[in-house]
Simulated scan of single mutants.
Amino acid sequence: MPRAATAPKRKPRAKSAPKDSVPTWADDTQLVGLVFDLEATATASLYSQYTIGLHAWFLDQVRQVDPDLSAYLHDGESEKAFSISALEGQLLPSGKQLKLVANQIYHWHINALSQRVALFLKQWLTNLPKIIDLRGASLQIKQVSIAHAPTTYAQLLRSPVEQSVVDLSFVSPTSFRRKGHHFPLPVPENLFHSYLRRWNDFSQQPVEQEAFLEWIDENVIIHQHRLESMKVAAGKQGSVTGFTGAISLGLSKAALANTEFTQLFYALVRLAPYCGTGHKTTFGLGQTRSGWLQEQKSATAEQLVADMLAQRIEELTEIFAAQRKRKGGERTDRIAVTWATILARREHGESLGAIAQDLEMKTETVKTYVKLARKALKGTVGGAIGNQ
């Protein structure tokens, strides 16, 4: 047979990272933390609540591989089995929004808190998409590395104690829910309640909560702290007051008599960087690191824009709540927060469709709420406000 014509050389397929650099771990891993190096493909505007977009993008990636897992992570009644960070890097203020800088590298963390999620991440890394798109702001995935070592809950429990006093740093705004309000202080009982909830959900070694938290309250000592508070917008909840900074913790001498709880105390400290602290950890809040981060950074552009949006939401919430109470409206606080959140984000340049998608509402409903909120500000709604 005649020799076939030489086929033209195929162009090599672009990869986000060399194959031999793709992180991997054992199938029984329950906890692992990844950090993505992302490069902005162009200078582009980024809406202030872009972490909602990162959350949605990640869950869509899960859906494409494992729809059942995606549904569980989105709708499940248990603790969320993952956490994500905001972008770390040079974000510039651009009016009421942020700006990605072309060719700059940004870092983004994803942490798995269960074996099922860790297995998904392991499979997903072998076939990553090249681009993360946040409403037209594109980030190219350049590299993925392990930030927090693959491990299991049992291994955390067995790890030796290297030092009696431990430090935790809260690198994104952190807050707890307490008596129906946000509580922006790292009180030990709140800290360890946050970690214990995840432990009891995913470790398969649940601990009686009340007894352990009573022991925490009696025996954990705060040796040092350096904290500051800030307001951030948080999805449908309006504004949240959170704290950032660092804290040093230790145990009283009496605590050491209870070896089981002492062992769990140190295991939960090791768990903190994986699960984060407080609530909204799947939207970038409560990101936690081991150790005392010495550098005191000035307020970033992201913090300034987030604070601007949060302050506007709070201001509008007070106005709408006061108006509705005068009119005798029901569900006053919830509706006031919803109106305030939608109108503030609209004022910050976000589209009705984008707001509706983030808040999981119909676009027409969001459009109606914007109109009602604007009329309420002008004081021309009259009795209709109290009847919505």
Rank of each mutant, 00 (worst) to 15 (best):
Q143L: 14
L139H: 04
Q209V: 09
D167A: 14
V166T: 12
P160K: 15
V117M: 12
W199Y: 02
S145Q: 15
L157N: 05
S114M: 08
W199K: 00
L156H: 03
S203T: 07
W124L: 12
R116V: 14
F170E: 00
P188F: 10
L128P: 01
P206L: 07
Y153W: 06
K130M: 14
A149F: 07
F183Y: 15
L191S: 04
L185C: 01
A149N: 08
V161I: 15
F192N: 05
R198W: 03
Q123A: 11
L196S: 04
F192A: 04
P160N: 13
A149Y: 06
I105S: 12
R116Q: 14
H193E: 13
F183V: 06
L168T: 06
R177Y: 03
E162V: 06
H107Y: 13
I141D: 06
L185S: 11
S169C: 05
I141S: 07
I105P: 06
S114Y: 03
L128E: 12
W124K: 02
A112T: 03
K122H: 13
Q204F: 02
S172C: 10
Q104I: 02
R197W: 00
H107L: 11
K130C: 06
S175Q: 01
P184F: 05
P184V: 06
A137R: 06
P150S: 11
T126A: 14
K130W: 08
S114K: 02
G136E: 11
T174V: 00
I110K: 04
A147T: 05
A147M: 06
L191P: 01
R116M: 09
V187G: 01
K142E: 13
V166E: 11
N111H: 07
S138T: 15
T174D: 02
V207E: 07
P150G: 13
H148C: 10
L125P: 08
Y106M: 10
T151E: 12
Y106D: 07
L121V: 08
S138F: 14
I105V: 15
L125M: 10
Q140M: 14
W199C: 01
A118F: 03
Q155G: 01
R197V: 08
P188A: 12
V166K: 08
Q155F: 01
F202P: 02
H182K: 08
I131A: 08
L156C: 04
N111I: 03
S172E: 00
G180L: 00
L196T: 02
T126G: 09
V117K: 01
R158K: 11
R198Q: 07
H181P: 00
L113S: 04
W199P: 01
L185F: 12
V171Y: 02
S194H: 05
F192M: 09
L125S: 12
D133P: 04
Q205H: 09
V166P: 02
S172P: 01
E189L: 13
N127A: 15
I105F: 11
Q163R: 13
S175K: 00
I146D: 09
T152K: 05
R178W: 11
K142P: 02
W124A: 14
E189Y: 07
H107T: 13
L119P: 00
F202V: 05
S169I: 04
V161Y: 00
L134R: 04
Y153F: 14
Q123I: 14
